[in-house]
Design a protein around this nucleic acid. Structure first.
Length: 653
DNA sequence: GAGTTTGAAACT
DNA sequence: CAGTTTCAAACTC
């Protein structure tokens, strides 16, 4: 059907070309004859091409980051110019200029097929092409498998180096090499003629190896591989990989959503890489259909652990993050765009794999890295309709991305959620005079450094796990309750009763502790005085006894699985490294350790002595969030992921 | 959408 | 360290 559709499409394409040559009556006449031919009619009756299929075919890895690549300014302009070129040659009324993406995709498909096989049009051998496409797809799968092996290998490395800075040299080398490979895979599809033609650099070598593999599969096509679908358009300007990387820089913090699907525990999702997805422009992103599905979104995880600042955005949006949205574009603050790019490649690759797992098993363990209390909060405090409305107002599917509205801080203070979360502001932000943008990277980094000099933990997660010190827990079965996590500094609420999101503890989904200086604490997650929830909450609690039991059970299960997973090299790699954040002055000074679920262990420098963290659990009994499973999951997430990783801070603590 | 409330962050 | 101011999110109307 594909080949037929293609044939049909091409036939139409030729027809469509005719108006341009209307001056040539001879040609017009030929075309008229062709249109009247039975073959033409037959072709016309064939089903249209499914552009998506082709898109997937040429996107073997389906990296979620691809969209970003294509949405990068450079490439966007390239695409634009390409469109313009075609436009100048054809009648705007033709399908290829249709606003209908599918139509356009079809045309592009034709065009790419022509590139793929210059003889396609003339010799009319669609079946051969189809075979080749199929083979290419198969080859791509092989490539994907290879990449999977690479990633898996890297995971193993990371597993064995669980406590080693992911950005450490050893890993960096390994990751670099791996990601370079992935980058090359990406280059495979990039319109980057220069990168393609550049001889002998490792990236090119890898790319060519892929090309050769595909060529082998499509052997009969001879040198067709030289004209792969990814073959850059002739008009495309030369761009090196770094250029692509630049296009990848816009990233979204992915805020997972409470209602997200539950990931399979067995797959070690606990260490799901931080899936900081690239977002790119929505339109182009949609072409990477699979990676842009809702399924993907919920697995994309923010890279900031439980930093409350970032967390705040989670409940705020409470929607499955849709990295497809350009509105949600988010660029992590960091000096190395290429590093970010590579990390994204891996993250997105992991995402893809998770996707596969989901599709295959239909059950993927949910990573709640960010929902934590938010989920619960949202449920508990469903004042959210308004919030949701507000968020939707702010940007549709990109809701899950943090957007600030800073007006005076220039987004260079912790007031700014974006800044505090370690991400650059993006278009959807309503900030004014924003300096939290890549172009002001120096300023951003300097400011962050300054803030950190004032408070080294300023960018550290605010909600931390305190269950690592059982002796200080006071017998509380911390592992069973959200109480095992605490706001590291405590809140200072006076009027909200710690029942609104003004309260960072509440917002973080944790109970107040003796660290808190709150007044009239009624925190549903646990009061400062350790008392139980209010009477009303008790009633609610009783109503949900079963839910709480289930909740506790789940927590146990999660913890158990978490424990067991740690010993498995099979486990996913630690959450992908948070892109280097130069401003994170933690030694090593220029790199912020990725906050990964792997590192749930609260660094003792935080748990132990110098930390203001309360390890004691004032609440023997914790009130389960007034929701059942969603809340439970969220709580679990909080426990599992609220662990910051700032080992380098240990000395100061 | 505008205005108010709130508490963290920043400042003194 | 405490008090005050600034700020932006959360919230209300």
């Amino acid at each position: 059907m594909m080949e037929e559709g293609c044939k049909n499409s091409i036939g139409e394409g030729e027809i469509m070309e005719t108006p341009e040559r209307s001056k040539n009556s001879r040609i017009a006449s030929s075309i008229a004859k062709f249109e009247d031919s039975p073959v033409f009619n037959f072709l016309n009756n064939l089903s249209p091409i499914k552009p998506v299929h082709f898109s997937q075919t040429i996107n073997p890895l389906s990296f979620a980051s691809l969209p970003s690549v294509f949405s990068s300014p450079q490439l966007a302009s390239l695409r634009e110019s390409r469109l313009l070129r075609r436009h100048s040659l054809s009648d705007p009324s033709k399908p290829e200029f249709s606003s209908d993406p599918s139509t356009r995709a079809s045309v592009n498909l034709d065009e790419q097929r022509e590139n793929l096989d210059p003889n396609f049009k003339n010799d009319g051998e669609p079946s051969r092409l189809a075979n080749c496409e199929s083979s290419i797809e198969k080859s791509n799968e092989d490539v994907l498998g290879t990449c999977a092996a690479l990633v898996e290998g890297q995971r193993s490395v990371n597993m064995s180096e669980a406590n080693v800075d992911v950005l450490g040299n050893a890993n960096v080398n390994s990751w670099d090499s791996l990601i370079n490979d992935a980058s090359n895979l990406l280059a495979f599809e990039s319109p980057n003629a220069e990168a393609y033609n550049k001889p002998v650099d490792p990236a090119t070598a890898f790319y060519r190896s892929i090309r050769n593999a595909i060529q082998n599969v499509c052997g009969e096509r001879g040198n067709a591989a030289e004209d792969m679908p990814c073959q850059p358009d002739g008009e495309i300007e030369n761009e090196n990989l770094s250029g692509i990387c630049r296009g990848m820089r816009r990233r979204c913090l992915v805020y997972e959503m409470a209602g997200g699907r539950r990931k399979r525990v067995e797959d070690g999702s606990a260490d799901t890489p931080l899936l900081l997805t690239t977002s790119g422009s929505a339109s182009s992103d949609k072409q990477t259909a699979r990676t842009n599905t809702e399924n993907d979104c919920y697995r994309i995880l923010p890279g900031i652990g439980l930093h409350l600042n970032a967390l705040a955005a989670t409940p705020k949006d409470f929607k499955i993050f849709n990295h497809e949205s350009s509105a949600s574009g988010r660029l992590l603050i960091g000096p190395s765009s290429s590093a970010n790019f590579r990390q994204d490649l891996l993250r997105n690759y992991s995402l893809e794999r998770e996707n596969d797992a989901l599709e295959n098993d239909g059950f993927v363990m949910e990573d709640h890295s960010w929902e934590s209390g938010h989920v619960a909060n949202e449920d508990i405090n469903p004042s959210s309709p308004k919030k949701r409305r507000r968020r939707s107002e702010q940007g549709g599917d990109g809701e899950s991305c943090k957007r600030c509205n800073c007006k005076k801080s220039k987004c260079l203070k912790l007031y700014c959620e974006c800044f505090a979360a370690g991400v650059y502001c993006v278009e959807p932000c309503a900030c004014i005079d924003c300096f939290n943008k890549p172009i002001h990277e120096d300023v951003v980094l300097a400011t962050r450094k300054q803030i950190e000099s004032r408070n080294p933990l300023a960018f550290a997660p605010k909600v931390i796990r305190t269950s690592d010190s059982p002796s200080e827990i006071g017998g509380d079965d911390l592992t069973n309750t959200p109480a095992s996590s605490r706001h590291k500094r405590g809140c200072n609420c006076k009027k909200s009763g710690c029942l609104k999101k003004y309260c960072e503890c509440y917002q973080g989904g944790v109970g107040c502790s003796i660290n808190c200086r709150c007044e009239g604490c009624k925190n549903a997650f646990g009061r400062k005085d350790g008392s139980c929830a209010s009477a009303a909450e008790h009633e609610h609690e009783e109503d949900e006894t079963d839910s709480i039991s289930l909740y506790n059970a789940r927590i146990h299960d999660d913890l158990d699985s978490q424990q067991s997973h740690r010993s498995f090299s099979k486990k996913r790699p630690p959450r992908a490294p948070f892109p280097p954040i130069g401003s994170y002055a933690f030694p090593p000074p220029t790199n912020m350790r990725p906050r990964c679920e792997e590192e749930d262990e609260m660094p003792h420098f935080l748990v132990g002595g110098g930390s203001p963290i309360k390890t004691s659990s004032p609440n023997k009994k914790r009130v389960s969030p007034p929701q059942t499973l969603p809340g439970l999951r969220s709580s679990r997430k909080l426990i599992l992921q609220s662990i910051p990783s700032f080992p380098s801070l240990a000395p100061s603590q």
